[in-house]
Structures are given as C-alpha cells and as structure tokens.
C-alpha cells in the first residue's frame, strides 16, 4: 500500500474528533476498518470519509454518557447538576449583560423623578458598573471556577458565603433573575452534598447538556426582556416589540426538551434544571401590575409557594444520600 503511514496519520487526526473515552476503546478498531476500506494507493482520507467520521464523532459527543450510558440515576443527575448548575447561573448573568432591554424614550422616567442613571437600557454593560452586581457576578464566577476544578467542599463554602452576602443585602442582581439565587443556594448545595460531586459530573456532562442549557438560558433572557417590557413604567418608555418573545422562549424550551429526549439524557437532570427555574417561572407567570408585584411585596404565602418545594427537594436529596441503602436481593440457588 502506498504511504500507508501517511494515510494512517490522516485517519488518526480524524478520529481525534471522537470523545476521548470512546477513542481509548475504539480508535484501533475503527482505524482497522478505515484502513481496510481504503482504496489501493490512497494517500489521505477522502472528503466523504472525513465527513462521515466527523458526523459520527459529533453525534457521539452529543450523546449522553458514553460508554454504556452510565449516569441515568438520581445521584448522577445531582453530580451533573453540581457542575452544570453554577455554569448555567453564570450563563444567565452574562446573557443579562450581553442582551439588555433598550428604551427609546426615557423622558417619562425623568418626569416621574425616577433614576435611570442616564442609561437608556435595563441590564447590559451598565450592570458591570454596579457594585452589588459585581459582587453577585464575582460570587457566581468563583463558584463556577471551583466546580470546574472539582473542589467540592470549597465550592460548597463559596455557595454558603454567597448566600450570606445575598441575605446581608450586599449582593444585587436584576429582579427577575434574583429568583434564581435562593433556588440555586438550595439545589446547588444539595447537589454538592448529596452526589459524588463535580468531578463525577465532568465525566457525565457533555456538549449535549451544554446546548440544552444554553437554549434554556436564552429562553429565560427572552422571557426576562418581555417581563421588563411589560412593567408599567417601562411600557411608557417604549422599547423594542417583545410580543413574540414568549413564543420564541417556548419554542426554545420545547426544542431543548426534544433534544433531551433525542439524546436520551438522564431524566432527573432536566427536572433539577426545571426546579432551579421554578421560582422564576412563578414570577414571570404572574401578570404585572403596579400594586401587586410578588418581587417587591412578597407575602408569606408567596415565599412558601416559591421556596418550600425547593427546600423539600433539597432536603430529600440530602436525606437519600445519607441514608444507607439496603443491598439488592439476589436470587438464591434452587
């Protein structure tokens, strides 16, 4: 065979597209097939072969939990969440900065004597100049870095510290997104306590999870913009037409759910993401009126409705983790 070493090198470069664990087990085997299928005198992979291998490799990367689909249980879902949850929260913050609500007429704000800080936008880069938001973003970034490094206990301490900061009022984030704070403290901490942690999560989370979470984060930002636009004062300041945003948001969530089913992801993982979003969903579902706003005037019932289910879920996860399990019954010989 002509220049089989060169051809082999070319194939190996293509096989590098596959996820590392898959490659470890299958590279030699697929290479055998590729070399056997090569034409006489072929010196490099043909474009059709390259497309075929890359397509297969991308599919493998998007598929959940290669090899042998581990991580279908509750504990692994928590491990995935312990890693993906902080990254998701950070993505939501960054989208708020990257995609503000731009107003075209802020004269009425001034007429009402309301401060705008001279800004024509809600959210966006102006957030980065505000100390409360800097602290919030810094805390979220720190937690994300700690889980990426697999430092479970330090990440847990950082979540506790962030919660204290938030409680002390040192931490500020725009109102709709504030809803993620308490749910994240509860679920993030529970995931770190009750699961094998972000190191295990790193083996289970893949590009597919990333795409799903990004779609959900975009849906949240769209719905936040709609929420801002529907507040009475902002309505007066006239901004972009957001009437189609809720539909776009729903379409993104449906597409993300479809991807979860198609990629056969751990079924508990989307439930945890849904639980994280639950207080936010309650908020945006309530029609905006100036007199009854659950963000500014939460009653005890509001708070219980918002956080009790999350508290029970977090407590249940921790309880399951600390409760010794009964060994499975095995069939005895007849």
């Amino acid at each position: 065979m002509t220049d089989s070493a060169g051809l082999e090198r070319g194939y190996r470069r293509l096989l590098a597209w596959y996820p590392r664990p898959f490659r470890r087990e299958r590279e030699e085997e697929i290479l055998t097939v590729l070399m056997a299928s090569a034409r006489d005198g072929q010196r490099r992979p043909r474009p059709i072969e390259a497309v075929d291998v890359i397509k297969s490799a991308l599919w493998m990367r998007l598929r959940s939990g290669w090899p042998a689909r581990p991580g279908q249980g509750w504990t692994d879902a928590l491990a995935m969440f312990s890693l993906a949850g902080p990254l998701f929260l950070l993505a939501i913050d960054l989208l708020e900065v990257a995609w503000p609500y731009r107003m075209s007429n802020i004269g009425l704000f001034h007429a009402y004597g309301l401060p705008t800080g001279g800004h024509r936008q809600i959210g966006g880069l102006t957030l980065l100049g505000q100390r409360g938001f800097q602290i919030a973003l810094g805390c979220h970034l720190l937690i994300a870095v700690l889980v990426l490094l697999g430092l479970r206990r330090i990440a847990l301490a950082a979540i506790a510290g962030t919660a204290i900061y938030w409680f002390a009022g040192r931490y500020w984030i725009p109102a709709p997104l504030q809803q993620f704070s308490v749910s994240f403290y509860l679920l993030g901490a529970a995931a770190l306590i009750a699961s094998p942690g972000p190191r295990r999560g790193r083996h289970l989370v893949n590009w597919g999870h990333g795409v799903v979470l990004l779609m959900v984060a975009l849906a949240i930002q769209l719905s936040t913009l709609r929420y801002i636009a529907s507040t009475p004062l902002v309505r007066l300041a006239s901004g972009p037409d957001t009437s189609a945003y809720p539909w776009a948001s729903i379409a993104l969530v449906v597409a993300a759910a479809g991807l979860v089913v198609m990629l056969k992801m751990n079924r508990y993982f989307p439930l945890l993401v849904l639980a994280l979003c639950y207080p936010y969903l309650l908020l945006v579902a309530v029609p905006q009126t100036s007199s009854s706003n659950p963000v500014w005037h939460p009653t005890l019932v509001h708070l219980a409705l918002r956080y009790l289910p999350l508290l029970l879920l977090a407590a249940g996860a921790v309880l399951m983790a600390v409760t010794p399990r009964r060994p499975r019954a095995t069939a005895s010989p007849a």
Binding site: R26, I30, V33, L34, S37, I48, E49, D52, V53, I54, K55, S56, A57, W59, M60
Partner: peptide, 8 residues
Amino acid sequence: LRAGTLYT
C-alpha cells in the same frame, strides 16, 4: 456503510 456510520 462507512466506518463512522457503522460505529454510530
């Protein structure tokens, strides 16, 4: 069948 399709 090509190798990528086969192994998927």
